[in-house]
Structures are given as C-alpha cells and as structure tokens.
Amino acid sequence: MFNDSDAIDWRDYVERVTATCRALRKQHYVKLDLQQFLPPGYHNPLRIPQYRGAPA
C-alpha cells in the first residue's frame, strides 16, 4: 500500500519552513516527529509565548 507521506521529502520541508520562519522573524517550534530533520544545535524551544489578542 502506498502512503502519501512516503513521497514527501521531510528534510526539505523542515528546511523550507524553518527558513521562512527565520526570514519572517517568527518564533516557532518543530514538533517531535520532525525534529530528526533539524540541524544539530537548532534552537527549538518547547514553550513559546502566544499572542491571544485582546480579551472579548
């Protein structure tokens, strides 16, 4: 059986997404199953403060 995720180059995906986040100067976290594709020593904080907007 063919699994669509087998056709995805996850290393390239992680590189492009993290490059985009860095270029936009956005904090980000790469989930556990994709962390294997991060370069050694990549800053990947577990908790990132989130902006929730003004209270309703």
Rank of each mutant, 00 (worst) to 15 (best):
I48P: 10
L34G: 04
L38C: 05
L38M: 05
R11C: 00
H43E: 11
L32K: 07
Y51N: 07
N44F: 05
A56K: 01
W10T: 06
A7M: 12
Q27Y: 01
M1P: 06
C21A: 15
A54W: 02
C21V: 08
L32I: 13
D4Q: 09
Y29G: 01
K26V: 13
L46I: 15
Y42I: 10
I48F: 14
V14Y: 01
A54L: 13
D4H: 06
K31G: 10
R22E: 15
D9T: 14
R47E: 14
M1L: 08
I48D: 14
E15W: 06
R11I: 04
L32W: 07
C21M: 13
D33K: 08
P55T: 14
F2A: 14
W10P: 04
P45K: 15
G41H: 11
L24D: 08
L24A: 12
H28T: 10
Q36F: 02
Y29F: 01
R25P: 06
G53W: 00
Y13T: 13
R16V: 09
G53Q: 00
P49E: 12
G41L: 12
D9Y: 12
L46F: 14
T20A: 10
K26G: 06
W10F: 11
R11P: 02
A56F: 03
Q36P: 03
V17R: 08
I8A: 10
Y29E: 01
R25V: 13
H43Y: 01
D4S: 10
N44T: 11
F37V: 09
Y13F: 10
D9K: 13
R47V: 15
Y42M: 14
T20G: 09
V14P: 03
L38Q: 03
N44A: 13
W10Y: 12
A23H: 02
S5R: 05
T20M: 06
A56R: 04
R11L: 03
W10K: 12
P45Q: 15
F37T: 03
V30E: 07
R22C: 10
N3L: 03
V14L: 01
I8P: 03
I48A: 14
V14H: 00
N3D: 09
N3Y: 03
I8N: 05
Q36S: 12
Y42P: 10
L24P: 01
R11M: 01
M1I: 12
N3F: 01
R11F: 02
H28V: 04
P39G: 08
T20W: 03
P39H: 06
T18C: 04
R47I: 15
L24K: 08
A54H: 05
Q27M: 00
Q50T: 15
Y51D: 11
R52W: 02
T20C: 07
L46G: 14
Y51F: 00
R25C: 08
H28I: 02
P45F: 15
D6W: 05
R16C: 06
L34E: 00
F37G: 06
D9R: 14
